[in-house]
Simulated assay, not measured.
Amino acid sequence: MTMLIDLTGKTALITGSTQGIGAAIATGLARAGARVAVNGRTAAGVRKAADALRADVPGADVVEVDADVSTDEGAARALDLLPTVDILVNNLGIFGPTPALEISDDDWRRYFEVNVLAGVRLTRAYLPAMTERGWGRVQFIVSDSAVVIPTEMIHYGVSKTALLGVSRGFAKTVAGTGVTVNSVLAGPTHTGGVETFVAELMGESLPWEERQREFMRQHRPQSLLQRLIEPEEIANMVTYLASPLASATTGAAVRVDGGYVDAIVP
């Protein structure tokens, strides 16, 4: 039996997809045949990412959605540009180290606005049409930090914990409709932002490969991979969950964490 993922005829919006994990997800969905909407805050950034995707996946149908979906106004603009979708991947997120006692109320609010409410707004907006059609896929890109709260950025970890509850709740809301809602729990992943984060924690005196190994040894020793995950590895799971092949998977927190979370069951 051949497992074939074919998303031809489906439209997918991936928030925060001009770089990193989001860009890899956009590429994976485009390769599976989906019409892909690339999203970012600026028109220039979105255009650059969209052009790169078109070059990487010849013939890809790419929509440019320049909108800051962490705001009410930005979400409204995204809906104007793309009124309906079949697949929504809530990938947008921010992170950064701050000592626990120095995280201000404004920082807490900002992390919840960007990491939690952005996905809630769009899910609330796009779900009704999905349920009417009897098919849809919503995914929230979460993090191992949702379960293993990092001491250097508990505000980030807690915002991702909230998404696990949000995802499960929306899955229950659309039970029996043909729409699935899941979280993808990503482990430590190799992105430009993480390279900067690692440099802040480890310094820049060591070459990148040694710096990465030391970061994993000192700060993420639970990882069974003992390396950072590549964004394409996250995208592979997202593409599968977006497909008809994953029709019985909903309300789940699916792990692509390299064995980082020390649990036998999800």
Rank of each mutant, 00 (worst) to 15 (best):
G134T: 02
V174G: 05
T151H: 12
R137T: 07
A118T: 08
L122T: 06
S143I: 03
G187K: 01
P97V: 06
G157L: 04
A175P: 01
F170P: 00
I103G: 05
T180R: 13
M130T: 01
S145C: 14
V120M: 12
I87H: 00
L92Y: 02
T173C: 10
T180D: 03
F95Q: 09
S167T: 11
S159F: 02
G136H: 01
V116R: 04
R121L: 11
D86W: 00
G187S: 07
L185V: 12
I149G: 02
R133Q: 09
R124H: 13
V120W: 13
N115T: 12
L127H: 02
N115F: 10
A146P: 03
G176M: 08
P150N: 11
K172C: 10
E113L: 10
V174T: 05
S167M: 13
G157V: 06
R124V: 09
S145E: 09
T177I: 06
G169L: 08
R124W: 09
E152C: 11
T173S: 15
L88Y: 03
R121C: 10
Y156W: 11
N182S: 08
G176A: 09
G119L: 06
L163K: 04
V166N: 05
D107F: 03
V142A: 11
D144Q: 12
N91L: 08
T151N: 13
N90H: 10
V116W: 04
G165S: 15
F95A: 09
T123Q: 04
F112G: 02
V116C: 13
R121T: 12
K172N: 14
Y111K: 07
P128S: 03
T131R: 10
D144A: 11
S159W: 01
A162T: 12
T98Q: 14
V116Q: 05
R133T: 04
G176R: 08
Q139M: 14
G165K: 12
G136P: 02
G136E: 00
E132L: 05
N91G: 08
V184F: 07
P188D: 08
R133E: 04
L163A: 05
F112P: 00
R109D: 15
R121F: 10
T123K: 02
K172G: 14
L101P: 03
R124F: 07
L88F: 07
A118W: 01
G176Y: 06
T123R: 01
V166W: 01
R137F: 04
V138D: 00
D105K: 12
A100H: 12
S104D: 13
K160M: 05
A162S: 12
V89K: 03
I94W: 01
R168Y: 11
P97Q: 07
M130Q: 02
Q139W: 05
M153G: 06
V181F: 04
T151V: 15
L92D: 06
A171V: 07
R109E: 15
V166G: 04
D105P: 12
M153F: 15
L127E: 08
Y156F: 15
L163R: 09
F112L: 14
A129Y: 00
A186S: 13
T98M: 13
A175T: 09
T173F: 14
P188M: 07
R121K: 11
V147W: 06
I87R: 01
A162G: 06
E102Q: 14
W108P: 09
K172L: 13
I141E: 02
T131P: 00
F140Y: 14
I154N: 10
Q139E: 14
G165V: 12
N182K: 06
T98A: 13
G178C: 07
R133V: 03
D86R: 00
D106E: 15
G157H: 03
I149Q: 08
